[in-house]
Amino acid sequence: MSHSSPRLSTAALAAIAIGLGAAVSAGWIYGNGLHYGNGEAAQNQVAIVGGECETKAKTLAELKPLARGEVAAMAIREEATPLPALSFVDTDGAQKTLSDYRGQVLLVNLWATWCAPCRAEMPALSKLQADLGGAGFSVMPINIDTGDVAKPQAFLAEIGVDNLGLHRDPSMDVFNTMKKQGLAFGLPVTLLVGADGCLMGAMNGPAEWAGADAHDLVKAAIAAQTPVPAGS
């Protein structure tokens, strides 16, 4: 099922950015205003999973110019880096980590129903999945609403998004772990993760994921890590 996505205009994105700035001073989204879980990830040294990254610096250098326009806030790394152990529950209720999805490029997006920019960009994330999702790439939103699953389920049903699944971490340890690594300052947070499970880039704040700029960046990330068949 495909979903239409109203494009976020430059003015709208600017307005959202101003709103996020106001939220910083108010302590609404950023800093100590968030309530974190009490799991080990929130209290101890963050564990790093995986070994050496296969994504080459040359690949990242080629991606950097594509982090432009509507996805200019995506900070592509100089070198790919292993990610902390990010644990969450998938749509079927099974406990998962990002390492379970190695072999795919992932666009991991942390969101909550109380985060207005998160809600605004969800249809665009759905459209990106519809356009480019497959064996080599997936959009993976991870919801961090506390409490039961009813509220995020109702929101996704209300906007007609049914192709992203519902991955959740109601303890918010995923956010706290990423904050410890300097990757998360507020919501939404989006990570571009290579097929090797290593971090290629990170963004704080919303973007127009259904637009041409996002498509160009994601297509390049997929192509850079997809083996080329012999003789082609």
Score class of each variant (00 low, 15 high):
Ser4Leu: 12
Ser5Gln: 13
Ala12Ser: 10
Ile18Glu: 14
Ile18Met: 07
Gly19Gln: 07
Leu20Asp: 09
Ala23Ser: 10
Ala23Tyr: 08
Val24Glu: 14
Ala26Pro: 01
Trp28Lys: 13
Tyr30Asp: 15
Gly31Ala: 04
His35Gln: 14
His35Phe: 08
His35Cys: 12
Gly39Leu: 15
Glu40Gly: 07
Ala41Val: 09
Gln43Phe: 06
Gln45Met: 14
Val46Met: 12
Val46Pro: 12
Ile48Pro: 11
Val49Glu: 11
Val49Phe: 01
Cys53Phe: 14
Thr59Ala: 14
Thr59Arg: 00
Lys64Leu: 02
Lys64Tyr: 10
Ala67Cys: 06
Ala72Lys: 15
Ala72Glu: 14
Ala75Leu: 10
Ala75Ser: 09
Ile76Arg: 00
Ile76Val: 15
Ala85Pro: 00
Phe88Arg: 03
Asp92Thr: 03
Ala94Glu: 12
Leu98Pro: 04
Ser99His: 11
Gly103Ala: 04
Gly103Val: 06
Gln104Lys: 15
Leu106Gln: 07
Leu106Arg: 02
Leu107Ala: 08
Asn109Phe: 09
Trp111Phe: 10
Ala112Arg: 00
Ala112Leu: 06
Cys115His: 00
Cys115Asp: 00
Ala116Arg: 01
Cys118Tyr: 00
Cys118Asp: 01
Arg119Gly: 10
Glu121Ala: 04
Ala124Thr: 02
Leu125Ile: 07
Leu125Lys: 04
Leu132Ala: 11
Leu132Thr: 03
Gly133Phe: 01
Gly134Lys: 14
Val139Tyr: 11
Val139Lys: 07
Met140Pro: 02
Ile142Gly: 04
Ile144Gly: 00
Gly147Tyr: 14
Lys151Ser: 10
Ala157Gly: 14
Val161Thr: 09
Asn163Cys: 03
Leu164Asn: 02
Arg168Trp: 09
Ser171Cys: 07
Met172Thr: 14
Phe185Ala: 11
Val189Lys: 00
Val193Cys: 05
Met200Ile: 10
Met203Tyr: 04
Asn204Glu: 12
Asn204Leu: 08
Ala207Trp: 05
Ala210Gly: 15
Gly211Ala: 01
Gly211Ser: 11
Gly211Ile: 08
Val218Tyr: 09
Ile222Tyr: 09
Thr226Trp: 12
Pro227Met: 06
Gly231Asn: 03
